[in-house]
């Protein structure tokens, strides 16, 4: 009786060992394949953000207190492609010669918005998001004020720099 129990125990021990061994091997194989696969898949999210650079938007004189579209060539590295797309931003001159540059994507879901001079508002056509000339939300679904860029003027040229989320 005792002999049988000990035999069963030995069998359990041996079986238990193989069960553990099986799962250890399966785990090792899974990790060896999984880590590189998941790592490559997640890599876009793990990569550090591009550092902002100063980009010329245009001569200071071409902007005024009324919002105007500023064009700039934004050189960026997108994966394996050097993109030099012409991008657009909204430029507003504030009293005292300071400038505000708004990113031209609505803070709701990123649609490009436009300035409605009659209504004195930026209006997004997608879901009726509305902002006043300071970028403050005055209607619709946007959760935060317009995103903006750092600005500086040098030699009569307006430059845009680091991106900031609206309201920060």
């Amino acid at each position: 009786m005792a002999e049988t129990a000990s035999a069963a125990g030995a069998a359990d021990g041996r079986r238990g060992f193989f069960v553990r061994l099986f799962w250890a091997l399966a785990g090792a194989i899974g990790a060896l394949v999984g880590v590189p696969v998941v790592g490559a898949f997640l890599s876009p999210a793990l990569r550090p953000r591009e550092k902002a650079q100063w980009v010329a938007v245009g001569p200071v004189a071409s902007f005024g207190p009324e919002p105007r579209l500023g064009h700039h060539v934004h050189p960026s590295q997108e994966g394996w492609v050097n993109v030099t797309a012409e991008m657009q931003v909204w430029v507003v001159e504030r009293p005292g010669g300071r400038f505000v540059i708004f990113d031209n994507h609505c803070t709701h879901l990123g649609c490009p918005y436009h300035w409605d001079a009659a209504a004195r508002r930026f209006i997004c056509p997608c879901h009726n998001g509305q902002f006043d000339i300071n970028g403050t939300v005055v209607g619709g679904p946007p959760p935060r004020p317009l995103d903006y860029y750092e600005t500086k003027t040098e030699g009569g040229v307006l430059y845009m720099g680091a991106f900031h989320r609206g309201g920060t």
């Binding site: 876009p44 953000r49 591009e50 960026s76 997108e78 994966g79 394996w80 492609v81 993109v83």
Partner: peptide, 9 residues
């Protein structure tokens, strides 16, 4: 997106 903007990636 694989990148900050919708693009080649």
């Amino acid at each position: 997106r694989g990148e900050a903007e919708v693009g080649p990636v």
